[in-house]
C-alpha cells in the first residue's frame, strides 16, 4: 500500500479499484483494432468450412438422412434437446439433405472470398451448427473450433479487408478502418481460444500418462489415428517425455503467457508445431489447421501487412488505415 493509499478511506479505495477495472475492461474490449487479422481468420475458416461441406456432400444421406449413421429420432440421445436445433430437422429426405448441405457450401465459399460477408458469416455459422447438431456421432474438435471461429466472424467486420466486398464497394465506405467492432470480434476469438486450451490442459492434468510424460506415445501408437509411423519413438523414451511435457506445459500456460509480447511468439510458434504435428502424424490436418487459424487472431495487423503480398491491399484502403 502506498502512503497515499493509507490516507484514503476504504470506500474511496474500492471506487479506485473498480475504476481501474472498468478502465482495463474498456481498453481491452473497446480500443479500435485493424480488421486485417479478422480477415485472415475469415479466409482460413472459410476454406476449412468449404472443405468440410464438400466432405458432407460426398455422403449427405449418411450424415443427415433418415437412414444415416444417426436417425433423426435418435439425435436426442446425443444432444441436449430441444436446444440443439438444426435446419436438417426440417426434412431428412435425400434431396433435402443435399440442398441444405449445398446452401452450407455456398455460404462457406462466399465467406472465403468475402462476398456479402456479414450474411455469409451468419449463414455459415447456422450451417455449421445445423450440421453438428444433426450429426453428433460424426463431430470432433474440428467442428468445435469452426463453431468458435464462426461466432467471432459473424460478430465482427470480417469482410472489411481482403474481400470482394472491399473491392466492389470501394474504399470510401470506411469499413476497413480500425474499429471497436473489429477489436470485440478479435478479443472474442482470443479469449475463447484461451478457455479451450485452459480446459484442455486441465483435463490432461487428470491423466497419469501426461504426468509420466508418456501420453504422446499413446497418441503416436494408436493405429486408427496414425498417418505417420512414429513407433521409432519406442527406442527414445526421453524424446516422448519431452514432447509430452512440452505439450502439457504449453497448453496449461497458454491462457497466461500468450498475452505478454515477450512470450507470445514462443506460444504461437509452439501452437503451430503442436497442431501441425497432430495434423501430420495423426491424420487430423483439418483440426490442426482450424486450431492454427484460431491462433492467427493473436498475430497483429502490422505483421500481416509485412507477411502478405502488397497487391492484396487496395491503395485507398491502406492510406485510409494509415491516416486513421
Amino acid at each position: 500500500m502506498t502512503p497515499t493509499d493509507s490516507t484514503r478511506s476504504l470506500p474511496a479505495l474500492s471506487r479506485g479499484w473498480f475504476a481501474e477495472w472498468a478502465e482495463a475492461w474498456n481498453t481491452f474490449w473497446f480500443t479500435p483494432a485493424d480488421p486485417l487479422p479478422l480477415a485472415v481468420v475469415r479466409i482460413c475458416t472459410g476454406l476449412l468450412l468449404t472443405w468440410s461441406c464438400l466432405v458432407w456432400l460426398l455422403d449427405p444421406d449418411a450424415f443427415f438422412g433418415d437412414r444415416g449413421w444417426l436417425a433423426p429420432t435418435d439425435v436426442w440421445r446425443m444432444n441436449d434437446q430441444p436446444w440443439q436445433w438444426s435446419w436438417f430437422f426440417v426434412g431428412a429426405g435425400p434431396n433435402t439433405a443435399r440442398v441444405l448441405a449445398g446452401i452450407a457450401l455456398v455460404a462457406a465459399v462466399l465467406l472465403t472470398v468475402g462476398l456479402a460477408t456479414p450474411l455469409a458469416a451468419i449463414v455459415s455459422l447456422l450451417a455449421l451448427v445445423s450440421a453438428a447438431n444433426r450429426a453428433p456421432l460424426s463431430t470432433f474438435g474440428l467442428d468445435d473450433t469452426l463453431g468458435m471461429l464462426l461466432i467471432g466472424l459473424a460478430v465482427g467486420p470480417s469482410g472489411a479487408r481482403l474481400s470482394l466486398d472491399e473491392r466492389l464497394l470501394g474504399a470510401g465506405q470506411g469499413s476497413g478502418a480500425p474499429s471497436v467492432h473489429a477489436n470485440v470480434a478479435l478479443r472474442i476469438l482470443q479469449v475463447h481460444l484461451c478457455v479451450v486450451y485452459f480446459f484442455s490442459g486441465c483435463g490432461k492434468l487428470f491423466g497419469a500418462s501426461w504426468w509420466e510424460g508418456t501420453a504422446i506415445w499413446g497418441a503416436a501408437a494408436n493405429v486408427q489415428y496414425r498417418t505417420l509411423d512414429l513407433t521409432w519413438l519406442a527406442w527414445h523414451p526421453l524424446v516422448i517425455n519431452v514432447l509430452t511435457l512440452v505439450t502439457l506445459f504449453w497448453e496449461v500456460g497458454y491462457v497466461a503467457l500468450v498475452w505478454p509480447r515477450l512470450t507470445r511468439r514462443v506460444f504461437l510458434a509452439t501452437a503451430v508445431m503442436v497442431h501441425l504435428g497432430i495434423g501430420l502424424a495423426m491424420g487430423m490436418m483439418e483440426f490442426g489447421l482450424a486450431m492454427i487459424t484460431a491462433n492467427l487472431a493473436f498475430v497483429p495487423a502490422a505483421s500481416w501487412r509485412r507477411l502478405l503480398p502488397q497487391f492484396l491491399f487496395p491503395v485507398s484502403s491502406e492510406s485510409r488505415t494509415v491516416s486513421s
Binding site: 451448427v129 483435463g203 497419469a208 500418462s209 499413446g218 494408436n222
Partner: peptide, 22 residues
C-alpha cells in the same frame, strides 16, 4: 449453448490417450 453449439468439454486427448476402436 445448444443454439450456438458451444456445449463442449474441450478434453482433447484427456485424461489419457486411449486405444482406438472400429
Amino acid at each position: 449453448l445448444g443454439a450456438l453449439y458451444l456445449g463442449h468439454g474441450y478434453r482433447f486427448f484427456a485424461p489419457d490417450p486411449g486405444p482406438g476402436h472400429t
